[in-house]
Amino acid sequence: MSKTILIVDDSPTMIMSLRSTLEMNGFAVESASDGARALAMLEGGLRPHLIITDINMPNMGGLEFIRGARALPSCRFTPILTLTTESDPAKREESRRLGATGWLVKPLSGPDLVGVVRQVLPAAA
């Protein structure tokens, strides 16, 4: 069974790009356009193996989303990667403090993405 990755990003282009790379590598992808929607999906029973979230989003940003997701019993241990740029190291620190597993730096290259995803994805399906 392929592993499910939830992508949270307000940019349809980013979602499309991540989705294409990840699906090409055999992952199943779900997406949400902001933190609130993603949280609703998790509360609705979605159990992704990994979450990739943007930081800057309308409605509910990435940091607040991470805090919310970590409060859900089902997401206590789920790896969460944030999408950041090299220009906001402070956000990385903060996201890590809130329970993010790591970060991906935009612009993303396919191999980087897949490499990091493979690194943080739990081994068990």
């Binding site: 392929s2 055999g26 949400a32």
Partner: peptide, 21 residues
Amino acid sequence: PLAIAEGSATRSDTPAERTLR
């Protein structure tokens, strides 16, 4: 053998997305 089922990736519609472009 690779543990990756090609083409089995599911693209399910996100229930939370309510607008359509």
